[in-house]
Amino acid sequence: MIDDTDRAIINALQGGFPVCDRPFLVAAESLGLTETALIDRIAKLRADGVLSRFGPMYNADRFGGHNTLVAIEVPEDRFDEVAAIVNAFPEVAHNYARAHRLNMWFVVAAQSRAEVDRVLTEVEAATGLTVHDMPKQREFHVGLRFEA
């Protein structure tokens, strides 16, 4: 379980991590922690799966990267098999089962639209299922900050 210090770290460091030679030292000072304590806490949060990573969230549009949301109607008895195929692609960033006839939803992210297309073609070939490609046309809001 996470404690109040972990919560303070999570709430303070969803963005705004210093870019300097000793960033953990700078961040630790404003949290009233030592540099080592902050690093150890973050390592534990990551090991425990509370954090998916400590790193960047990119705006891929700004450097020519592409991503799309993909939906597939997967027969119930093939769900695990298809999930394993899809998840094996490093370009698949996340994948959720959702309650709908289109029941598998995942994001494909790559450096170019051609790479995204290649992944979609390969997923169709490997699964024999139709993929519904729904690329972002316009972004209105990206928040994804969660209070711990």
Binding site: M57, Y58, F63, E91, V92, A93, H94, A97, R98, A99
Partner: peptide
């Protein structure tokens, strides 16, 4: 559409590392 199961969640990978 509520999520039922999460199969994968990691960062998107871009750039030359790809």
């Amino acid at each position: 559409l509520f999520s039922l199961r999460r199969f994968k969640q990691c960062g998107a990978r871009y750039g030359r590392a790809m």
